[in-house]
Nucleic acid binder design. Structure first.
Lengths: 204, 204, 204, 204
DNA sequence: ACGTGCGGGACACCCCGTTAGT
DNA sequence: ACTAACGGGGTGTCCCGCACGT
């Protein structure tokens, strides 16, 4: 049954990626163990070395490119695509994903991209460039949406979309980071309100 | 001469703490090496286990309590003590320390407390409680100052000091984290402006 | 076009052999990497195990038989074929190849056969028998030539051709080995002179 | 019992060195396994890393300096110290140690220094310099002895002691290397005779 | 005839913690 | 108070061999 075989072959690489994402998310990149990843993926060193010849670093890059990047796309970028009312859409996306993360408990582990950024960007330029690219895309998406909002008169016209987008993204980084150490749903609620209040100041 | 001996002992302990802070700041807690710390401090395992009997973890706690906490006090809390115009004082402190970090280059390594928070708070409750306490004190300081500002009529009276303080702190976490991965002074400038713009909205 | 296919097949096999010779010459047999060899040869594991079903060992044997042996033939045996003045011919071959190796720099890596002999003969009898056969042929060639020289009165008649041939070959092993560790052209020159002086003592 | 403890502590390092020498002698440096060494020495990784902080390479250097060098001193250099009849003394040392090696069987593994020279000198300059120094001392010892022999009229006066010493050493390298691949006592005997014949030509 | 995917294992490095001794 | 020796373990790297498929 060639389909099964192909799927199995293809899925080994994917299973390694998925397990690696989970492991790095939980323990960080440096402290994450390839042995644990391989055990979770149900495969061995040989397969890893075949798919990622230069080892852990290459695996980390692939996780960033093939797992984290798509997550960001669907979570944060897609909802803003073609938005004419960015303030509501940003707030809506924020509330939705915060609620999801509360339910799954993943808010206690922060944002995978932020985790990686804080740990690896000073140590490895390969990671840093990838991360920088992802956050830049995020900021650009928000800035574009805010500029669109100005045209659509849903956003005050004397603000800098670029600056505001940067602050919104940075604040979200900080908010998710706050969840990690505080474990306080109350505090997260207050932060949500405060961010909402800030967004309201961008209205016309 | 007991005073000399005690002083020497204290200085060894302090040298270990200082070296540990530097190592953990650079490489993170888990990836930081005790051997490197001891080599930098010019001492050996014996001294370390004399002063920190349970090893690396206890050393990490001591770094948090005795190095990072005082830094936060002088950097962020002291300038707000008894402030009647918190918005200006917060912005001034932000600008001052950002400028300093740019000059020393330490902005590329982020904020030591935030680094530790992102890495260790999900893994170790001892760290998490300490970090939570520090950030709580920070928020409380800002909230108190903002409440004072309301009384002094330098702050708009229909805002929640608690919520605003939380957002300001979280935004600063995000901003310093942004410096790490972007290495862009331009972006940092824009974030400074955006944060300033937000603070202005808190004016009466 | 079967000729083309066969040729192409042969050429893959040959490219593997050539790359293997170079790799083993540089890094030794055990430390030499099949992956490096295959990368250099521009092919993959499948081809290797097709042509050398039992793997690295068989490849090493083939390198000995098909690369090293012909080199020895043309370098050291051919010049002595039918010689009536072996002393001059031996010395001439020695000088010629030493000069060549100096120019190409390969004298710094020693003699491929000697390298293999020192590394592998105590560990693998398959190698040992091959190497023994090659050196035996070398000694026999020199001994025959020296015996011929005795008949032709270019060599003193009261020497043992067999013993002298063995010493000449062993001395050459030692001389090439000396080049490897000393990297001294001066020393090589002195060794050449000393070997020449010894050969002169074999004159009538 | 402090003596026992000191001996035990001191002997761990020595046991590692001895086991390493044996392992490297048998399998070569690169293929030699630290695990095997430690198992043979009855100790663990911690002890090795303590005594040889930079690992295998440093261990290899120490084996060269502390095991191989003394062997060479007692085997080849000491017998020639203050010799007035170097030709006899060289030949006597050669016969004695060849006989010993035949009896112990170690002639089948060649000369430890030559093994190391052939394997490592092109790959690591630290080894190369050490090896070069040892062989240089050997040549110098023989050259000095031959020069002394010229004064004492036990050696022909129109030979170059330097050149002859170099050839004798190189020939011995070659002879011991020949034993490794040939496993032929007969051939070794012939080589001994041929070397003896050469030495006789250095007589006045 | 030859490429791809993969298994399983060995290796050297280095780490952290502890104990015996000064 | 402080040092040096040592235990034991986990890590990532990389390798060789063998299935498949084509």
């Amino acid at each position: 049954v060639p389909a099964t075989i192909e799927k199995k072959n293809a899925s080994i690489r994917q299973r390694i990626l998925d397990a690696a994402f989970a492991e790095f998310y939980r323990n960080g990149f440096q402290a994450g163990s390839l042995n644990h990843i391989l055990a979770a993926a149900g495969t061995t060193k040989g397969a890893l070395f075949h798919h990622f010849p230069s080892g852990k670093q290459e695996l980390g890059y692939a996780v960033t490119d093939e797992i984290i990047e798509p997550i960001m796309q669907t979570r944060w970028l897609a909802p803003l695509r073609g938005s004419s009312n960015p303030i509501d859409d940003i707030q809506e996306a924020f509330r939705k994903h915060m609620k999801e993360d509360m339910e799954t408990g993943s808010w206690l582990q922060g944002c995978p991209l932020n985790n990686l950024a804080q740990e690896m960007s000073p140590l490895d330029d390969g990671f840093r460039h990838r991360i920088d690219g992802l956050y830049a895309a995020w900021r650009k998406c928000y800035a574009t949406a805010l500029a669109g909002g100005i045209k659509a008169k849903t956003v005050k016209k004397d603000i800098s979309p670029r600056n505001a987008a940067a602050l919104i993204v940075a604040a979200q980084m900080g908010i998710w980071g706050t969840g990690k150490y505080s474990k306080s749903e109350k505090l997260m609620g207050e932060l949500g309100e405060a961010l909402g209040a800030y967004l309201q100041t961008l209205r016309p």
